[in-house]
Amino acid sequence: MTVDHAPPSAPPDISPLPDVESLTPARAPGRVPSVPRWLRRAVGPVLLLVLWQSCSATGVLPADVLASPGTIARAAGELVGDGTLPTAMGVSLRRVAAGLLLGGVAGIALALVSGLSRLGEDLVDAPVQMLRTVPWVGLIPLFIIWLGIGEAPKVALIALGVAFHLYLNVYAGIRGVDARLVEAGESLGLGRWGLVRHVVLPGALPGAMTGLRYSLATAWLALVFGESINADAGIGFLMNQAREFFRTDVIVVCLVVYAFLGLLADALVRTLERLLLQWRPTFTGQ
């Protein structure tokens, strides 16, 4: 070890050698002020809007095919201003809420019955899995015959879509709980109800949240289907009315509202997941 005797301040030899490559930074940071990512990502949609507006203005895109963005914005302003849109949204939201509640209770209850007991599984799972293969949209004619054309068939359609998604995911969540954790709970002296409460249900929660997300998406879809057949109020009614008068601007406003409500529901589930699933090792959002 001759470290101690090394010359105190000999500069390192940096003369180029054969087979030696000097690794320099790819790009000096901060030299070129780069455009922020969100701005670059916003450019595409804005360009599209500009293109759309200019097509409408020049008459390439007639108003009865698709209204211009400006007209749509004006229509949205009017619909909000005279209270038509808020009222319609209220009606549609109530339908979704009722359907979610009914379908949620039914789906979760059935999943608990078949997830927690063998007997329940044998009795419940087979019929539910069979019914699941029937496309629920195809049930609309039957629902109209059974429930008329009022609120009931719309809520029932939403509830049905919600119930299946929640059932499948909660059931899979319960059955996917780590058996070793259940055994550990048993060794700690937990009884049957204690195991369900402290081990099985929390373990099924991630599955339940996935189910909730799917079922919300389904709920909006069911709402659109339900409201497009026959409605005297709600966003679907607004759209039907607009179709009669070739008001493409109002139709687009309604579509935007549907999209916005879907986005809102998704944000709601995300917040719920952040609160309830913060224990998850895979959780990365913050």
């Binding site: 954790l181 709970g185 700690l188 937990l190 204690g194």
Partner: peptide, 25 residues
């Protein structure tokens, strides 16, 4: 009697102290 397994088998949805108390009367 009490068991400690090869894997810790803590309930991931409970904070450490709640795991310790789990199942106590």
């Amino acid at each position: 009697r009490a068991v400690a397994f090869q894997a810790p088998r803590l309930m991931p949805w409970k904070k450490v102290w709640r795991n310790v108390l789990l199942g106590l009367p």
